[in-house]
Design a protein around this nucleic acid. Structure first.
Lengths: 215, 215
DNA sequence: AGTTGTGAAGGTATTCACAGCG
DNA sequence: CGCTGTGAATACCTTCACAACT
């Protein structure tokens, strides 16, 4: 019931892996997942055991991809719910999401885009409507948008975040290199290339010290 | 010396926070950092105590921003070292990095960009050279590039990753929605909006259950 | 055979609580 | 005093090892 955060992260990635796996019928074993992701098969089995369903996802030859995916979605509260998101800031980064394939199979959907530059709003094409920033409050409320993907320039990051909170947004995926301060109850998820590169470096430094404990 | 992974992540973000903090002279207290980031001040102090410097960063009124930043960089092995990175795939997402501000103060630098579409390579402008993909091996070796930022379309993700490994890349920041399989010793850091949104949802669900333990 | 599922052991990280210092 | 720094206690996550099932 109470899923550890690292477990949740792995399961979420596992869900993505299952979504993009072509052969949806033949079972996938923990060993196979290990081989694909690098996580120990032990850990994967433990992770799966935290899922709260009992529709027998697993047989002697592995886990049923479809049932497993469903179970993950169910425990994450991602079935029959679609969270509406908006992109805020349609510069190079923001507009990159206009044709991003990753939302396809997911429980999230892009419902609007905002930019203070009216020109951009008119020129760019998307499957969902784009608006000038001053319509933000109205649109977010009317459409029922819960999350924002923040892609504005650094100088505007904090101010825009505050504005989003006022509009009723409860979660922000922050693509700017800024650290945002928001009131309690609002969640921020920072997505930063620099941090990712830092993690890589730290991880590589660690494994180098380990002088191959396995293989 | 051996820094816990979560600690490393926090310190890395803290470094970013210090970099962008305007007032570089007045000390910053753990309580202030807590207020900005949401991490308990206890944890922050513990984190800072793992840094291996002895130049007295902290006084009775808080930590000296400049010295603290330097200490973090030093323990991360990020002083006097600059890791060279390349962008692979110069579509909307990839080209968004061509003028991304975040690399400025960091220990990472963009040294090359690659795309199989020769047109793009010629049209796009950047502070660093862009090459057609077939020059990848030669350029990566010559320039001494260690990391790749992968922004190719999903269909090419796995193949390109394998090729990068052959070129001697040891770490990949993966912006595609695909789960990549790479040999041991190569590190992948997945950056996915979908996962970020998933984390937000999980976190929000968790805090809702907690019925405010603090305030 | 081969693979899952899980209690128990082991290892990490966080939180507590208080000493120490300006 | 207010703030940091840190051993000790707690909570958390992972790994192990083996039972159970096909």
């Amino acid at each position: 019931m109470n899923i550890p955060k690292p477990t949740a992260e792995r399961l979420s990635q596992l869900a993505r892996l299952l979504e993009q796996r072509k052969n949806k019928n033949i079972p996938i074993s923990s060993a196979e997942i290990e081989q694909l992701t690098g996580w120990p098969s032990n850990t994967i089995r433990k992770d799966i055991s935290t899922l709260d369903m009992r529709t027998q996802i697993s047989t002697t030859s592995g886990h049923d991809p479809v049932k497993l995916l469903e179970a993950i979605r169910k425990t994450f509260g991602l079935t029959n719910v679609v969270f509406k998101c908006c992109i805020v800031g349609l510069g190079r980064l923001g507009s990159a999401f206009l044709d991003y394939a990753g939302f396809q199979e997911s429980s999230f959907t892009l419902a609007a885009g905002f930019d203070s530059n009216v020109n951009r709003v008119e020129i760019l094409k998307a499957d969902f409507p784009l608006y000038p920033t001053f319509k933000m409050k109205e649109v977010i409320a009317r459409v029922g948008i819960t999350y924002a993907i923040l892609c504005v320039p650094p100088t505007q990051a904090q101010a825009t975040a505050e504005r989003l909170v006022e509009c009723g947004i409860t979660g922000i995926v922050n693509f700017t290199p800024c650290i945002l301060s928001v009131p309690q109850g609002i969640e921020i998820e920072n997505v930063s290339v620099i941090d990712a590169l830092g993690s890589l470096t730290a991880r590589l430094a660690a494994t180098k010290t380990k002088t191959r404990s396995e293989l």
